[in-house]
Amino acid sequence: MMKKPSAEQTLGGRLKGNRSDKAFPYLMIAPAILLFCVFVIYPFAQGFISSFHKWDGLSPMKWLGLRNYENIMQDSLFWGAMKNTFLYAILVTIIKNIFALLLALFLVKKVLPGRTLFRTAVYLPVTMSYVVIGVLWMWIFNPTFGLLNPLLEFMGLGGLIRGWLSDPDVAIYSVIWVDIWKWTGFHMVMYVAGLNSIPEDYYEAAAIDGASSWQRFWKITIPQLNSTIFTNLLMSVTGAFTSNYALVNVMTGGGPNNATEVAATYIVKTGLKYVNLGKANAMTFVLFIFTLVFGMIQLKTIVRDENYDH
């Protein structure tokens, strides 16, 4: 952890301190700490406290004890939404990363014509907002003049045609696909960078020893790529718990029949449409507990990677 530096090492020590110098470090962090307290700590605390109350957001809170949480336990809509949230997070994370890694493996270390163009193109959706992408895909999925169904028909797969956003069994997967579409290019670029940092001699040595390309992949590439894979998985999963709000809200509004409701959309509905902020905030904290594991892994990775005394 942090070493105590001797006085002459520090700027404060050199430029001998009058009182304003002593205050200087605190003045420098004050705005950041203030913003952090007002917009992260305060909402967190207020949200937590209100989750034990009946609250409409305006009039004073009324104490309910654990009633909101008991209420949630029996709310099948909420657990349906949580199930979708997890399905979304898991599928998005796995599929994005598999696609991205496969593309990166193909792309890396080969001087293919059109390689840069390809990278530019698959990265494009990263710069677009979820709203625009959601609306665009809504029309691609549209049964009467969308792109998808005519394409399937053209390929002789007419049997697959369905209401991509209106069929309750399929709708959530359609939304999940759009998230995958948006981020695969981004993860691919991360994997290409990771693959490029593996020293070439590892492969050369393995080739001399007669290792097959399959062996080289499992014995060199994957272990060397470990931390890249870890970062990518963590990045996909932490984002996925709430980034689904815009897509679901724009594309399906949670329907049909709550089939695409996710925690983020259901929380907002409960809080603002049904004006039950206490219960909505209780849900926020249930969701938070589930994401806390990933948050803590993230914090731990970050603190471990931090170099305290350079």
């Binding site: 917009f39 992260v40 967190f44 983020a264 603002l272 926020t284 938070f288």
Partner: peptide
Amino acid sequence: FLLCGIMIPTGVLTLPLYSTMV
């Protein structure tokens, strides 16, 4: 203390944040 903020995934606190802004 400040790093604790990194533990909270973006967007989870949106509704409490809304109340704070109100």
